[in-house]
Structure formats: C-alpha cells, structure tokens
Design a protein around this nucleic acid. Sequence first.
DNA 1: AATTGATCTTTACGATGTAAAGATGGGAGG
DNA 2: CCTCCCATCTTTACATCGTAAAGATCAATT
Lengths: 242, 242
Amino acid sequence: MAKIDTKSETARRTRPPRTSSTAASRPKRGAASVKSETPYHHGALREALLEAAERVLERDGLAGLTLRAVAREAGVSHAAPTHHFGDLTGLLSELAAVGFRQFNAAMASSCDAATTPLEAALARPKAYVAYAQAHPGMYGIMFRTERLDYSRPSLHEAAEASFAGLANAIGMMRQERISGDALTLNQGAAIARAWSMVHGFTTLLLDGRLEDILGRLPEGTTAERLLEAMLTVPMAGKPPGP
Amino acid sequence: MAKIDTKSETARRTRPPRTSSTAASRPKRGAASVKSETPYHHGALREALLEAAERVLERDGLAGLTLRAVAREAGVSHAAPTHHFGDLTGLLSELAAVGFRQFNAAMASSCDAATTPLEAALARPKAYVAYAQAHPGMYGIMFRTERLDYSRPSLHEAAEASFAGLANAIGMMRQERISGDALTLNQGAAIARAWSMVHGFTTLLLDGRLEDILGRLPEGTTAERLLEAMLTVPMAGKPPGP
DNA sequence: AATTGATCTTTACGATGTAAAGATGGGAGG
DNA sequence: CCTCCCATCTTTACATCGTAAAGATCAATT
C-alpha cells in the first residue's frame, strides 16, 4: 500500500532497447550474451545521457528537461543519472558545457569562412545568433545561470573559451592586442558593448520580443538583416537617405 | 492511511496571524469578531498574495517562488491562489506586470531628473540597470518568457508601455518622431541596438558574467561606469589617449 | 430569513529531485 | 580458476510541487 509512487512509473517504463546512435559503445559484452537485451551495465551511460538530454531538450523544451525524463529517454532507471552527474545541476552544467563547445566550434568555423573585413566583422555575431536560433534550448541552458555550477571544470573551461574568443575578436577589430589580464576602460567597454548587444539581441529575439519591431520594418526584413543594421549603422544621428 | 501527504504540510503551517502591511484590508468585519484571528475570507487576498510573492522572491530567489510558498507566506491554504490567478503562470504573469509598472515608474522619474542632454541620454539606461540590480528576482521574472502569459491584459499593457517608452526615448534622441507603426530599418536598428545593449548588459551583469571584465578594469571601476563608457565612446577605432 | 455565489480549505493524485539500500557483474588478487 | 571488491545500475522511499475536485464559510442579494 506504499507502492503508489512506483505504479505509474513502472507502468510507463517500456524500456526501449537502447538504440544508441553511437554504435561503438559496449565493446566488451555485446554479442556474447544475447539473452539480456539491455545489460545491467550500460557501458557509456554518461554520453548516452547527455545525448538523451539534448534530444529531450529539443523535443520538449526546457520545461520537459527533467532528470527522470532524460533517464527514460536513455532507457535506464530514474536514479541512474545521479551516479554520473550527482545532481540536476550537474547534468545541466555538463549539457551546457557541451553546448558551449558546439557554440565555440560554430563561431570558429564561421570566422574562417569570411573574406572581406566587413564580412569578418559580422560573421561572429551572425554565427552567435544563428546558433541560438538553431538550438534555442541549448542557448537557454547555457545562459540560465541559476541552475548551473560554474565550478565544474568542463563548464568553466568551455565558457571561458567562449569569452576569450569574443574578447580576442573585439581586440582584433580594434587593431589592438588584449594584453594579458589588464584592460583599459575603453577596451572593456568595447568588449562589453559587443557582447551585450549580441547577447541581448539574441535573448530578445528568442523571447519573441523583437517581433513587434520586426513587424513594423519594411516588408520581409529578417532578424539577421536587423542585426546587420544594428552593427553597421552609426550609433546616433540621422540615417543616410535612400 | 492516505494522509501521508498532508502530514508535514499541516505540521508546518503555523499560520502567522496575517500581519498585512496594508492595514486598510478587511474593512467590513474587523474588530467585530475578535474570536477568529484569521477570518475565513481574507478580503484582499489577491494583493496580499502578490506582496507575499514579491517578498518570497526577494528572500528565497526564483527557485523558492512556488505557489505553495507564496500561500504559506500569505498565511492561507496552498490552494487559495488558484482562485485568484488560476495557475502558477497566472501568478507569475501578474507579478511580472507589477514589476513592469515599478520599472516604468522608475524609468520615468529618473528621466525627469535629468538636466543636461548627455545626462538625459544616460538616465534611462542607468535606471534600467539600477532597477534590475535592486530587484534581480523581479527582473528575472519579467524577462523569463517561458512561464509568462502575455495574453493577460495587465501584463501585456505594462510590458507594452515599457517598450513604448523606450522607443520614444530613442526617437527623441535621434530627433525624429516615431510615426505611428511604421519604422525604417535604421530606426528599428537604433531601437533594437539600444534595447539589446542595455538588456544584454543587465542580463550578463546579473548572471555575474561581467565580473571577469570588471576585475580587469582600472581599480574600482563600477558596473555603472562601464555602462556609461559603453554608451558614450564611439563604437570602433582607437580610444583617445589619457 | 433563506439562498446563492464568491472565496477559502481539505483532500487527493501524479510528477519531480534526491537519498539510501539492494542487485549485478567486470576486474583484481589469491 | 575462484573469490571478493567496487563501480554501476535498480528499487524503494519520501518530501515537495502543481493542479483538480469537493467541501466549508460567509457576505450580499432576493
């Protein structure tokens, strides 16, 4: 009469046969014991859980991303993630680290593809926004600090690399070297301005708060075009007539 | 044997005697029936709940802001909020509306106090950031779209007023009239740039992500000073030497 | 004065995070 | 080869949360 809790839980757990996309997992056991379709020891649960988490996040959004949902998606018991991540914060932090690495890779590759100086200057912000639009859930996690543990090395490093890349780009654009650790006020302001602008734009865009503006712009103006205009046009004064 | 749920709940509910800060509540009953310290009908539960929610938010942060916690804080049963807000989304939305009204008032009053043109141009962004720093929880709710219902009139109006004030200020700064509903690309870009910059800066600041930059700036540089520099200094090129 | 409808409480249920104890089996040491 | 250990995963349990539904209470209307 105390099993009320597990009733629905057990009933739902159909346990799909762990269609792991990374077929390289479980090198030891494998075809030796065919009797048990889902061996007790997964072999690569950590990675499988992170992939499952990403899938759940894309499918059900941030609200659906729970420890138990991720465990279900991976086909393991609801308490299995605990051993690998300790906590919901732990899982989210590691997932955010994955996101930052994807993010950094996307930024780096898009920068390499630039040819003209103007293109080079716009490539990074565009890639920033493009990543967020392609992976809104990921972006949401990465910048939702309340449930993140930055003392975790993987997250700290990935996020740090992201910031370093940004600061570097700004420095190059200003044709200065960002020397070591010290910054002048104007250097700091340039970095903070660029970051704030792109990050703020992205946040507002994902929250749908720019639709109001976009709707009033000339027909068919995209968010990317608006971003370009934001970054290109001088800060104040009358715009040049058409 | 099915009362396991209510056990701890009831045990905790000490029911403080509703020390309502707004003494104007319950005009009808009052001193007539002294026997019941907490009358069955509160009289102004809606407002009391919103105030309680704000208190809980400031004390326990976003994570602690639950329907039940708010009900506890207000000294009513955990299901009482349902009748007034329907939903957690409802409560959060109404609370966000309160926040937007506070926010708008702060912005307006700070704009009136400006004397020089430069001061006037900086007053609004400074007030923006200042409000967020003074009420981080509120700000978090106001711009956390996922659990907000913008179809609610109070929230929609309050947020709309906030946006209108911003757009107006940008238009005045550009010495243009924002005519009706249409916007040129440059006008839209100016609005989006200003909003993105201030909102992004605020978000990054509240998330502690600017501490890295602030720490590398000249000794004792505050966030407000950095914001000023962001808004004052030209966007690119070498800074003027000291 | 009886009724009614709004307001608040009780009770109940499914879901979640987390802790703790039990099961499993790969690998180390005899 | 056998046994034992321990990392890994499962079971079980519990406090809390959001929400729904039914019951209690009371002010106001008829």
